[in-house]
Structures are given as structure tokens and as C-alpha cells.
Design a protein around this nucleic acid. Structure first.
Lengths: 204, 204
DNA sequence: GCACAACCTGAGGCGGTCCTCAAGTTTGTT
DNA sequence: AACAAACTTGAGGACCGCCTCAGGTTGTGC
């Protein structure tokens, strides 16, 4: 957590908030690689001030997308109130909607390096329920869900300008591939949790 | 075609070949955004010479990946000699292998803008056969194959450093989603050919 | 072996982003 | 009101990749 020893001076607080707000808007529209100077300009603040508050770009990114952790958790909790399979579908659809609505978030979750996946425990439960129900194939693991994120992320970004909702078709095909009644043996063992971690850290 | 009125002078020919060769290697390892100066250096040639032969980066990219058109066509032809469903599987696996083996090619086929998809007619035949056979679901179109490319492309690039073959698992799940026995109604109508063209052109 | 066209060279200008820091301004405190 | 600490400012240096062009070099045809 970013609890500070001293509270910020009120002008500093204001500037910081403006920076986060501008960054949020620009990340959403233009992705995570916007020029920092542009963010500062949009916030009506100098580039030096931006660096005062966020020495590294990653600090700003983290601040901007901190709320997404809660959002995903809430989605997951709601999914758990539905029937097992529809719950899984709902969860994945809502997460993809987040990706489709925010280019920066889409890059964040799909780009190895700097990504952190949310709501592990909740997602595990969603999967476990769907498996017990017999709807989700048994050979799918939590780590396989990364394929859904990565797969749709490219589609979302590709078709965004032409037909923004088209990723739903891609996801639907993928979902049919997750159903127990379609299951054919999978090649390659699933990612071990530690392997996924390395991927997300962007190890080389 | 790049048939020239005059044949190149022999030193020019040599330099051009070296440039293409160096570019091929660097694109494969580092992606399409390598510095042009680095390519020139690797070719033992000045940056000016690179610009003489390839005024725009796209010219160089096109030259480097020209052979892929034939490669994909050959894969498709071979796929047509197999049983319908295994033929489709084989085709998609081989194309993904190309993506996995060459970062530049992976970016080229998956990145809207500058991409051109190969062997349309052949791929159509592969799909048609698999549908007639009853293995491939009937509501899948040629344009849906873009989802396979886009989907696996991100996975390929994400897991390349950790477990290069892991995309096979992603592809297998996707393939199970393409099977007729798994088919559930799809949301969103398929891309119209013209929509796919716009996506690949990178329209905004 | 001469002359001209074809080709090569690379220093340097341009535009862009990152990041720093010394000097100036604002805020909270006494 | 006055002071110290907190904060802001923005010009400017460093780096990078793109691209040009005037001048030098090499190959080819006669």
C-alpha cells in the first residue's frame, strides 16, 4: 500500500490526482506508451512534477490500474452467484469487456512484463465449480486462462476500430473449446504456476 | 513483381542480398522494429545504401517475407492430401510453427497494418473439406481463421522464452472449439471479407 | 583504359522521448 | 508575518532512430 508517513500538501495532492486522471484517459485511448510529457501537459502540470510523484512509468501505471483488482474481484464474486458454466462465461466476458474498453488495460494484462493477474483464488473457485458440474473439461487449469486473455487481447486490439464487439465471437469459439463435451487430449502439459509467473515477469 | 528494366550492378546486387539476409536474421530475432541502422551495420553496408534499395521499411519487410507466401501455399497443398480434419489441424499447426520460429513473421501476420494473408483459395478448400466431412462446425468462415492467428500470436510471443512449444496447448483448445461436436451458437456475425480487409489494412 | 552512369558513404539535421536539477513558488507552522 | 520545508518549474543535456544529400568510389560498355 502507498500509505505515506506525511500527508501530501494540498497542491501536491491536487496535482497528483490530476496526473492520475489524465494518465487514465490517455492510457485508455492510446495505450501504455503515451509520452509522459503528454500526460503532464494534459494534467496542466510540468514534466518535473510528474517525475516527482512517479519516478518510474511503472509507478504511474500501477496507480492508474489499481482499481482493476477490485473490479475483477467483484466480477468474480458475482460470477459465483450464477450457475457454474454461465458463471465462468460471464466472468470471462466481463474481463474481456474491460480489455476492450481500455487499450492500456488490454496491454497491461496481455503483455508479459509488468502484468499481474487478479483474483487467483476466486478464479480457481469459478473453474472448480464448472468442472464439478461437468461442463468444463477436466484437463484445464487455472493457468490455461491466460490463453483466453492473451488470445482475445490481440483480437480486441485488431478489430477495435472496425467492429468493437467482434471479440465475442472469438471468445465464444474459445469457450466451446473449453467445454467438456468437446474435449480431446491436449498436447503439452499445462503451465506450472511458476512458469506462468516467469512469463508474466517477462523473464528472458 | 520486382522485375527491373536493368539488372543491378554486381556490387549493388551483392549489397542488396546482404541487406535482405541481415534483415531476415534480425527481424526473426528482434521483431519488425529493429533499427534500420543495425540492419545496415550487420550487412556491412552504410545506411544510405539501405535507403537506396529500400526507401521505406515496408519495402524491406516485403522482400524479406516474400517467400512465406509460397511456404504457406505448400503447407496448404500438403494439408489437402491428408484427411479433412487432420489436414486442417496440420495446416494451422504448421502456420503457427512459422510464427513461433520468427518473431518478425509473427508480428507481420498478427499486426493489423501491413499484413497480408496468404493462400486464401487453398485455405477455403481446407475449410470446405473439413465442413463436408462433418468435423468442422458449419458456422465457421474463412475470416474466423484470423482469430487463430491473432490468438496464438500473442501466446507465442509471451511464452517463447519460457516454454516455446506451449502455444500448441492454446491451439489445441481453440481447435476443440472449432469442432462440430462442440458447436454452440456464436454471437456476432462473422467478419465480412471487406471487414477483415479493413482490419488488416489497419483502418481507423 | 576512358568516361559516364550507377552506386556507396556517413556526417549531420530533424524530431521525438526521457530524465535532471538549480532556481523559483506555494503551503503549513509558529 | 516570517520562515522552513515541501513542492513546482522548464530549459536543457543525453539518447535514439529516421532520413538526406553532396561528394567520393566502383563497375560497365565502348
Amino acid at each position: 500500500m502507498t500509505t505515506r508517513a506525511r500527508p501530501l500538501r494540498k497542491d501536491a495532492r491536487r496535482n497528483r490526482d490530476r496526473l492520475v486522471e489524465s494518465a487514465r484517459a490517455l492510457f485508455a485511448r492510446q495505450g501504455l506508451d503515451v509520452a509522459l510529457e503528454e500526460i503532464a501537459r494534459a494534467a496542466g502540470v510540468s514534466i518535473g512534477t510528474l517525475y516527482n510523484h512517479f519516478p518510474r512509468r511503472a509507478d504511474l501505471v500501477e496507480e492508474v490500474f489499481a482499481d482493476r483488482v477490485d473490479t475483477v474481484a467483484r466480477i468474480a464474486e458475482h460470477a459465483l452467484t450464477l450457475e457454474p458454466w454461465p458463471g465462468l462465461v460471464h466472468f470471462l466476458e466481463r474481463v474481456c469487456e474491460l480489455q476492450a474498453a481500455d487499450r492500456g488495460y488490454n496491454e497491461l494484462v496481455s503483455r508479459p512484463a509488468g502484468a499481474h493477474r487478479h483474483g487467483y483464488e476466486l478464479m480457481s473457485r469459478i473453474l472448480a465449480r464448472a468442472k464439478e458440474d461437468g461442463a468444463l473439461r477436466a484437463d484445464i487449469t487455472l493457468e490455461d486462462m491466460a490463453f483466453v486473455t492473451w488470445g482475445t487481447s490481440r483480437t480486441v486490439e485488431a478489430v477495435g476500430a472496425v467492429r468493437p464487439e467482434l471479440w465475442r465471437r472469438h471468445l465464444a469459439i474459445l469457450l466451446d473449446g473449453l467445454r467438456a463435451d468437446a474435449a480431446h487430449p491436449l498436447p503439452e502439459p499445462p503451465m506450472r504456476p511458476e512458469e506462468l509467473a516467469r512469463v508474466l515477469r517477462g523473464d528472458c
